[in-house]
Simulated scan of single mutants.
Amino acid sequence: MKVERVVSRPFPEVRTRYSVRDTMLYALGVGACTDPLDERQLRYVYEGSLQALPSLSCVLAHPGFWLKEPELGIDWVKLVHAEQYFTLAAPLPTQCDVVGRYRVTGIVDKGADKGALMYVEKTLHLSDGSPLGGVSSTFFLRGDGGCGNWGEPGRELPATPDRKADGSIDQPMLPIAALIYRLSGDYNPLHADPGIARKAGFDRPILHGLCTYGVACLSLVRALCADDASRLRSMGARFTKPVFPGETLRTEYWTGPDGDVRFRVLSVERDVIVLDRGVATIAN
């Protein structure tokens, strides 16, 4: 990786308009509405009572797969999502014009043959300049260790509580879940092309990390917000293991004072933790 070129890469403002169709498609991609006769679940996919999932903020005003640009020298085939965090200033509209501004905030070199972490920040605004929210992403560049450090590392997510969870909720994922989710803007072939997946060390395409993250968001809204998505104001988590489309994802959660929530996500079939160190804030 050519660090100087990465950190000096210009990021033009990304102006985009998302529609109610985009809001519905995103929700379907993260497994919403497994029971089309459940009116509360229809809130995510039906225009009659539509609401936007807060994690939709992570895919709005997407800059494209810029990490694949040859001049940056990143071994993008070995790139995986490491952590994600968003915070919202207000509930997301179901459709609107948004402006996204990006910057690389830090690179942490874990050592040769150990990879590197890259921290990227996105701020979202409405077209009139009003703040909508902020999104922080951490990427694990498995093939780019030894590149050197730059900037500042991201926030430290707290460890998951060492006690039995207060509750849990299961979300089955379709075998074609990754193919649906990628239509929300992340076209990394790792999640669709079996050949690319094998080059990255997987025997088949894996689910997007942000899709698993969206499943956790949906699950928390369903379990703790009575399907009122406007109450979930912030959420962060660390990706720990890949997920394969068709698995059942179980979100375990611990509730605390003042709307503080901790959570993690497991693959039920493999009994492994796939999302850990989860934190969220829920408004009353």
Rank of each mutant, 00 (worst) to 15 (best):
S168P: 02
Y213T: 00
V120A: 01
L37K: 02
A283H: 09
L28Q: 03
L224D: 01
G146D: 05
A226W: 08
D276F: 12
S267G: 10
D276R: 07
Y253L: 14
V135F: 07
K164G: 02
C147L: 05
F11A: 03
D22Q: 15
S49N: 13
G143M: 03
D109R: 06
V99K: 06
P175I: 14
P91Y: 11
A165C: 08
Q95D: 11
K241N: 13
W66S: 07
L117F: 12
C211D: 00
G129N: 08
D193S: 05
R163G: 02
A200H: 04
L141S: 04
G134V: 13
A280D: 03
Y187W: 14
G106W: 04
S137W: 02
L60E: 12
K68M: 12
I180E: 08
E69P: 00
G143H: 06
D227M: 10
V6P: 00
D109L: 08
N149K: 06
M235C: 09
I74H: 07
V261L: 11
A90W: 03
K122R: 11
C147I: 06
R238H: 09
K110G: 00
G209N: 01
D75R: 15
T94K: 12
D113F: 14
G154W: 02
I180R: 14
G29A: 14
G185R: 13
S168F: 15
M118Y: 00
D22I: 14
P205E: 07
V108Y: 02
G214M: 01
M118A: 01
A90R: 09
D276E: 07
K241S: 13
V30D: 10
L190Y: 04
V30W: 09
D144W: 06
R198P: 00
